[in-house]
Design a protein around this nucleic acid. Structure first.
Lengths: 165, 165
DNA sequence: CATATATGTCAACGTGGCTGACTTAAAATC
DNA sequence: GATTTTAAGTCAGCCACGTTGACATATATG
């Protein structure tokens, strides 16, 4: 049991270290990484949607989002049905940085998968799924069966803030 | 691949959340948890040994250790062969808190293991081992084949600081 | 119109990392 | 025995990123 605890600790730490070097090059922090990642995975996600995924306060998130908007890595468009909502998506630049960030991680994970074998990967997923909360499990599944009709309609070409350059 | 990244993120977060509640009760932070944990796993570990495991600076660590000494959760004894070294170990109180902290985590992990099955656990371990660095892998093994003759001889009954009560 | 919701903002604070400079005691080396 | 190296600690300041609390604004909804 203790071994499992340490495996998680070391693996998570070593896994993040990969991305940290890239982050340093771009002068970004881990919080930016997480935001970029999830916006990349959930295009047009709203601020409140992102808050639920990250489980941080809106004050913390808005600092990060403000940075990313200023750096032109993400952009915000008002919802069509509900103009209070801000739908977030990566710009070309944001996409590039996000890819740069996860490229290392994907490579590392791919190597670990390859070395361990398909069967082991299955076990890895089973155990981790058992560790996470029902809520997070749903978040994971939601993306996989990416049917869910976005119900988050957004207005095209109506950027918010630091307006149209 | 993306799924694996998210699994790690969610699992690690949810796994820590368990302990966070206990930490809050004891008015401790995550840094204290990590120190207590590794001292518990490596009795008589030296400060520099702990630094290597945690990979933080001595300034950061010494804040944490000072807290734990003040709370009488750990104690330090000078090395016998090398009196510059300080060997750390949990006091009865420290042991109790540490158990309290990991009890939740062990239970959660045990449940995940049970649900996933022995074969899955094996895969879980294989993949995670593939993710961590050679250095961390050695740290893990070292404890398992706990032969390694501690070579860290310490003086019995010679506590340092906040002296003998 | 009144209320609820989505988002943002200002201010203050806590934790836990970091760097850099310096000290002390003990060990190791010349 | 003098010099250098090592283990540990200290002081000071900084930064990232989380928190709480109070309040503002625009929009949707009953």
């Amino acid at each position: 049991m203790r071994e499992g605890i340490e495996l998680l600790f070391f693996a998570y730490r070593d896994f993040l270290e990969e991305a940290d070097q890239v982050l340093a090059r771009h002068k970004l922090g881990r919080a930016h990484h997480r935001a970029l990642y999830f916006i990349g995975q959930h295009p047009a996600i709203t601020v409140s949607g992102l808050l639920k995924l990250l489980r941080i306060t809106k004050q913390s998130l808005s600092r990060v989002l403000a940075d990313l908007v200023a750096l032109e890595m993400i952009e915000q468009t008002p919802g069509l049905r509900d103009r209070r909502r801000r739908h977030l998506r990566l710009t070309a630049k944001g996409l590039e940085v996000e890819r740069d960030l996860t490229a290392q991680q994907r490579a590392l994970l791919a190597r670990a998968y390859r070395q361990a074998g398909a069967e082991a990967v299955d076990g890895f997923r089973k155990v981790l799924l058992g560790l996470i909360t029902e809520q997070d499990r749903r978040a994971l599944m939601a993306r996989r069966d990416q049917a869910e009709p976005t119900e988050d309609i957004e207005a095209p070409g109506a950027r918010i803030g630091r307006a149209g350059r």
